[in-house]
Design a protein around this nucleic acid. Structure first.
Lengths: 213, 213
DNA sequence: CTTAGTGCAAACTGTTTGCACAGCC
DNA sequence: GGCTGTGCAAACAGTTTGCACTAAG
């Protein structure tokens, strides 16, 4: 049984997590903590989130295949997430029945718990969807070295931002799915229209600006 | 709207998936399909599982942060999984109440669905746990170049198998968690006691056999 | 002083993609 | 013959680890 120390880093991580009520991923939290402790490393954030969730100080939410998210509300609530932008919100399950574990249905398992996730489209994405209208069929219009519609959208989004964006940010700004974005990013990098100053962050190049001008 | 072809590979994948009722990961399915089509690639398995689940021929289960698993039973059931060995079983929710979506609780979301997962310890892991007894504290006993208890367990498990194993197989055979296994594998590889003939598969070396002799 | 924790780089795991080629319809 | 699908290698995304050093108690 080793004892834990409250380091400055750990304190800031916890404090930053409690500051607002969304459910940041390790990555997002890292970005926020880095503003206060510029020298902190992503590995430290991961390690601390793991430790804090082991000791029960916070909750780790392992929703549906994507990256883990972290939550400091320890009461027994469940989550709803947007299948488009992957935002996560709380659902107060006090109202709904506390999903009883099925009686003899547990197949020999010693049941430790139950997780209920709702999913759908968040308010923002519903709005975006209405605006969207027709959905083009991927690479239909992409000539040999020209930009297709999706790529143009991505470039436009990057042009508006004056700092490097993650693919999720771009997805949120373009009504594309994150998967489509990162797919386009690859082609755009190859064409020299997009640069990646840091891991998983992208920005438009001067060439890219010319291309959409 | 592009049309799909039923290739031989796709057929075998589907057929192999339907053969038994567990919920293989892409990796496991790949291993099984490879016995029939030795030249198939993992990418093809992934691509087909994605396509089949998009068309609704199979279900993709995205449980809790770990790798995706696939299921050909299309009726509306839920799952229970083992937090130790990550085995997944079906739960027939006909008996339990069909978790009603909370009335005004949906926070503006357009709710598309709901997933209920139970988790706990599967029958096998319950047995193993009883056998385990004391749990050593990681690297307490690991001298500079000697084997610790976990490493010895991993090597013994590998010695018993006459083909390369994945870390999950080892975990299942040792009552260690997969995470602990892969951690130990790394050290064991460095010591030359374990080799990795293919990605994510491991086997014991002659040196390794000597070490536990 | 002891030992938990940090920063960094590099590895690992699961998954996806680009490309040239193969083969279904 | 055109287009979907394949195999391969390489990239990607998220996470974890080893190592030498720092700092909490």
């Amino acid at each position: 049984m080793k004892k834990l120390r409250m380091t400055h880093q750990r304190e800031v991580i916890l404090q930053e997590l409690k500051k607002n009520n969304n459910h940041p991923s390790a990555d997002e939290l890292y970005e926020r903590v880095k503003k206060k402790l510029p020298r902190i490393s992503l590995a430290t954030v991961y390690r601390n989130l793991e430790i804090l969730s082991e000791t029960g100080a916070i909750n780790k939410i392992e929703i549906s295949g994507r990256q883990k998210r972290f939550d400091w509300m320890l009461d027994n609530h469940n989550h709803i997430y947007c299948v488009q932008c992957h935002r996560v919100d709380n659902i107060d399950m006090a109202t709904t029945e506390k999903s009883a574990l099925p009686p003899a249905e547990s197949r020999g398992y010693q049941v430790a718990g139950c997780r209920v996730e709702f999913f759908g489209y968040c308010p923002d994405c519903q709005k975006k969807q209405k605006r969207k209208g027709e959905k083009k069929m991927g690479c239909k219009t992409c000539g040999p070295s020209d930009l297709n519609d999706n790529q143009r959208q991505v470039l436009n989004a990057l042009a508006k931002s004056n700092e490097a964006c993650g693919s999720k940010d771009i997805a949120a700004a373009t009504s594309l799915e994150a998967k489509q974005v990162s797919c386009q990013i690859a082609s755009l990098k190859k064409k020299g229209y997009v640069a990646s100053p840091v891991r998983c962050k992208y920005e438009i190049t001067p060439e890219g600006k010319k291309a959409i001008a």
